[in-house]
Design a protein around this nucleic acid. Structure first.
Lengths: 147, 147
DNA sequence: GTAAAACTTTACGTTAACGTAAACTTCATG
DNA sequence: CATGAAGTTTACGTTAACGTAAAGTTTTAC
């Protein structure tokens, strides 16, 4: 599983490799602090297709980068489906102009939605503050006779 | 069901009532622009308990106010369970000090959560803008040879 | 008096991204 | 060789607030 230690104390004449070229599902789970279940789920949704050695999944650097992109996408509010769309485009015709344009459209959509959310939250915050004031008034009303 | 028209053209010597004292489920649904399904769902969750005439639900002014409070709670980000908690307190001991304090605690929690959300959204917006810039740069890179 | 509108209950479906459990195989280690 | 860690598949459960459909009864309207 772990070949880190094997690398560090390599006895063969081969040079120590600083960058691994293959990872187990557990390696990636640890590195990105997610569960193996999540990684398998992403595969289920068609976002990754690691090779197999028998039953076992073998992840390459490319797979690792993909995972990193999936997680970045999530941070940015992209759904898995949206990320998959981008991946599919990339897989078809490389990092094309078309893909970049799609990406930009997606980003615009997200930004619009987030700005709307910002406004909504601000409004609700104000409403909450108003209700809060009402509560405080009522409360002091009810407790003033017991000072 | 509808006694609005009946009121307006009342022929009996009774005075015209400006405020209804009972409503059908459809009346309330229309007034608040929600579905009857929602109203029945709130009842299911223990937030309302209208009387029945046979099978049919009869809503009083008090029920109507409750519904209004449920919807206000939703606007303010309260879950139905939270609203129910407040109702339960009210039902037990009237609009007590205790209830007001619970309300204030809930409000504080919501405000904290919303402020956190605000910050998160701002961060993501900045990240999105950064990614956007990257995309634009790459895009102009890829299209500059075809001017 | 009959057809349409409104109402009722029951219960499964929806969304997103996994969590959790069961039951199994494979691998490395002492 | 036994055992424990890591891996595998399959499939149901979770959350919130309803949507939707089916299949029935009751009211209302013309």
């Amino acid at each position: 599983m772990h070949n880190t230690s094997a690398e560090e104390f390599e006895t063969s004449p081969e040079r120590v490799r600083r960058t691994q070229d293959s990872f187990s599902i557990g390696d990636l789970a640890k590195e990105f602090d997610i569960t193996t279940r999540s990684i398998r789920f992403y595969e289920d949704q068609g976002l990754m297709m690691p090779e197999r050695r028998g039953q076992t999944r073998i992840y390459t650097q490319k797979d690792r980068v993909r995972l990193k992109l999936i997680l970045r996408g999530k941070r940015l509010g992209f759904t898995l489906a949206e990320t998959k769309t981008l991946f599919d485009m990339y897989d078809r015709d490389g990092s094309s102009v078309n893909q970049l344009q799609t990406m930009l459209r997606l980003i615009e959509d997200k930004k619009l939605a987030l700005r709307q959310q910002l406004e909504d939250i601000k409004v609700v915050l104000h409403e909450l503050t108003a209700v809060e004031s009402g509560c405080r008034a009522e409360l002091s009303e009810k407790t003033k006779e017991y000072p």
